[in-house]
Amino acid sequence: MTRDEIKSAVLRALGEIAPEADPSGIDPQVNFRDQIDIDSVDFLNFIIGLHKRLDIDIAEADYPQLATLDGCVEYLAAKAQRPAK
């Protein structure tokens, strides 16, 4: 999976929880929560969405690494290279 594919999967998962967000307007280095109105329920649904799309296990302790678009791509790209069990 390329980084571009991962990025578009992240944006699609984000679009599902916050349909009003404009994907092109998201600053990749800024925390999602500072740009989009999302709460812990939305964030959990976002993680579930990523898990379903990419089939990657995401530990709760790693959630802080997924707080930005760049962080998501970084984390998921690393995980995708080492497929989970």
């Binding site: 812990s40 959990l44 579930i48 898990h51 296990d57 530990a59 709760e60």
Partner: peptide, 17 residues
């Protein structure tokens, strides 16, 4: 909660709320 969620797949995790 952290220990509990560690054992759970992402769909079954609990929020502290």
């Amino acid at each position: 909660l952290a220990e509990e969620n560690l054992r759970r797949p992402v769909e079954d995790r609990l929020l502290y709320g």
